[in-house]
């Protein structure tokens, strides 16, 4: 037996296999592409709405709304002041519109990730079997190079906002699923038993005990999801998502150092703002556990 050359599949067979799968997928895309596209229409509509609202409103109003939202979440004047300063600098250096597009994109992606991720995490916490099936899938979503799953997404949806959202959500949804699952599994058994002993049904246990006690962990997941959405902005720009990623891509292609750094720093600034605001919010949720005896 030849131990030096690996006994691989015949070249012709491999080619035939690839062609067959590609062909089948192409047929699938032709047959169902439009249906799928229509399915995602509400997401595109939402994204366009937020984007238009943020770009077409007076910048002062947008800034005030952002500052107010950050205040509601963090209750910290320091974070609000930092946010306003960062946004003013971004605007002064001519990146206002791109920043608005990126914020809109991240907001929609995070929203989709939360709406899908929290229920999936809850189901995983309830079923060990589902947990065993979904966990490797999540590992795959986080490690598979994003360009690989961009291929089928682009084949179905073409270039634009919707494939961008899908690509970002695939990459950014695992932490919120994982941490929702973890948070619910970590709820102390005795508290859950007490809820049961008083006659709570499954929904009452979820609403009164499991979700509130898991909330700080879930918030850590939301924070991670936002950070990972931002990290995908440049990749998403390759399939036609407009925003801060596009100038970065342009800078890479043309070796515009300053343009790259400026837009890169704008992404960092947004990331820090989101991070601090969500973390402060998560801390406030845990207020009851910080005080007094233990």
């Amino acid at each position: 037996m030849d131990l030096y050359d690996f006994p691989e599949m015949g070249r012709g067979d491999l080619r035939a296999m690839r062609l067959a799968i590609d062909g089948a997928f192409r047929d699938f895309t032709r047959a169902y592409g439009e249906t799928l596209e229509n399915l995602f229409d509400p997401i595109r509509a939402l994204l366009v709405l937020i984007e238009t609202l943020m770009i077409n409103s007076p910048w002062v109003v947008v800034l005030a709304v952002i500052a107010a939202l950050i205040w509601i979440m963090s209750r910290s004047w320091k974070i609000v002041a930092g946010t306003v300063l960062a946004m003013l600098l971004i605007g002064y250096f001519g990146m206002w519109e791109d920043t608005m597009r990126t914020i809109a994109m991240v907001a929609v992606c995070t929203l989709v990730a939360i709406v899908l991720g929290i229920p999936i995490g809850i189901l995983m916490a309830r079923s060990d079997r589902l947990n065993a099936w979904v966990t490797p899938l999540l590992d795959m979503m986080q490690t598979m190079p994003s360009f690989v799953y961009l291929i089928p997404v682009v084949m179905i949806f073409g270039l634009g906002k919707v494939p961008g959202v899908i690509a970002v959500v695939i990459y950014a949804i695992p932490p919120i699923i994982r941490l929702t699952n973890l948070g619910i599994r970590q709820v102390p058994a005795d508290v859950l038993e007490a809820a049961e002993a008083f006659g709570s049904d499954a929904w009452q246990k979820l609403r009164n005990v499991q979700l509130p006690l898991a909330l700080p962990t879930i918030m850590a997941g939301v924070n991670q999801t936002i950070m990972m959405s931002l990290a995908m902005v440049v990749v998403a720009s390759m399939i036609g998502v407009r925003g801060l990623g596009q100038p970065v891509l342009q800078a890479i292609n043309n070796q515009y150092f300053t343009l790259g750094v400026m837009n890169g720093l704008a992404i960092v600034a947004i990331a820090i703002i989101f991070d601090r605001a969500t973390q402060a919010y998560g801390k406030r949720l845990q207020k009851h556990s910080e005080i007094g005896h233990d």
Partner: peptide, 14 residues
């Protein structure tokens, strides 16, 4: 018909 008191109190911390 029933109510229960637990060794480790099992109060809702939040």
């Amino acid at each position: 018909k029933t109510a229960m008191v637990f060794q480790k109190f099992a109060l809702l911390p939040h």
